[in-house]
Simulated assay, not measured.
Amino acid sequence: MARPLGAVRLKKANPFCVALGGFIFIFVVFFLFSSPTSTSTPSAQSPHSASLKRSKAPPVTRYNLNNVTITPDPVANREAVLVLTPMSRFYQEYWDNLLKLSYPHDLITLGFILPKTKEGNAATAELQKRVVEVQKGPEGNRFAGIVILRQDFEPAITSQDESERHKMENQKARRSVMAKARNSLLFTTLGPLTSWVLWLDADIIETPPTLIQDLASHNKPVLVPNCFQRYVDSDTGKPGERPYDYNNWQDSETAQKLAAKMGPDEILLEGYAEMGTYRPLMAFMETEKGGLHDEVPVDGVGGAALLVKADVHRDGAMFPPFAFYHLIETEGFAKMASRLGWQAYGLPNYRVYHYNE
């Protein structure tokens, strides 16, 4: 038979525990009754959707390219110019000449692309110093914008010595990489308000200050000046000038016959005895009595100094890194522009100068 339990004595509650329990009870009741009900709006149900409701919608920017002017008087019409330079070495003379350009700097955007090599790293460091100096300097000297890119592909040759760069066996690989660099730079920087693109090599150290205005005044879709090089004769000690860029040319029947016998991936090269094309070269078209702004049509162009209407690039003319009608890079660009209906021209008597190594 079960025995009856005796009296049970309750232990006195701890006041701290009682207070804590009361606080928890009040918090639970408040949470339950203040939480959103199932009839709340979607924004109240989801913190993420609530934040979207509070934030502003992304802006939509509209550009009418028909309103972008490309005229022979770009200064008066406030036309934006993009100056693009592939750079492996930094030449102070190039930078000094660039700063001397009289075209309003607030209408110029600069773009650079440099390889990830030892020389490229050194050039990038020097370029960044100069960029900071000018953009923090007097307002009238500042450019509208500056873009510096680093190549995401390997250079074809590591040495930038002139003799190594111009070896015939290095040309296809070297110029293919150059074409990729130019395209990367172009596609990254060309904006909807750009009127003109000036390609200016990093070793062009002397041009007229009015280079952009002078070239634009011709109102040609693609235009190149003549590129020369100043030097001192080793025998006489006298200064002289000599043609440098042989990529500005008019096609010849001989070159066309050579191309007809080539494989699909082979390219024609200019300025090499092993490949006589007999093309008329603009480098030798200069005349003593010729005018500074005399024009000649050309079928191939170099990239030392090259002014292009932005519409030509927008139409799809780029720098082929492959054999395009047996041409590559800048010469291939001229061919591509021609196929799109844009004729290139040259100025035999208008000189720019290349660095003399």
Rank of each mutant, 00 (worst) to 15 (best):
E253K: 06
P239I: 01
V298P: 00
S159G: 13
T207K: 01
P115K: 10
P209V: 12
E357W: 06
V68M: 08
N121Y: 14
G302H: 07
A7G: 11
A255C: 14
L20V: 13
N141C: 15
H326T: 01
S217N: 04
G120M: 12
R230V: 08
V60W: 05
R130Y: 12
E126M: 15
L223Q: 04
P138Q: 15
P15K: 11
A7Y: 06
L107D: 08
T277E: 07
A317T: 05
T61P: 08
Q151H: 11
T210L: 04
H48Y: 10
N66A: 14
H48E: 10
V131F: 03
M87S: 04
P15E: 12
L185F: 03
L193F: 07
F27Y: 10
H293T: 07
N66G: 14
E79Q: 12
P264G: 05
L20T: 12
P155R: 08
Y272L: 06
E126G: 14
I212Q: 04
L82E: 09
K129F: 12
L84I: 07
V132M: 13
N97Q: 11
P36I: 10
A173D: 02
F25D: 12
G300K: 04
F143D: 06
V132Q: 15
P72I: 05
G300V: 01
A80R: 11
T37H: 05
L32G: 07
L200N: 08
A156Q: 09
D235E: 08
A125S: 15
Y353T: 03
P348H: 00
L84N: 04
S55E: 12
D73M: 07
E206F: 01
W95D: 10
N247C: 04
F284T: 02
M336L: 15
D214P: 02
A310K: 11
W196T: 00
T189M: 01
E329S: 15
E329C: 15
V81F: 05
A57V: 10
I205K: 00
T109Q: 12
A304Y: 03
D315I: 09
I328A: 12
L114A: 07
M282L: 00
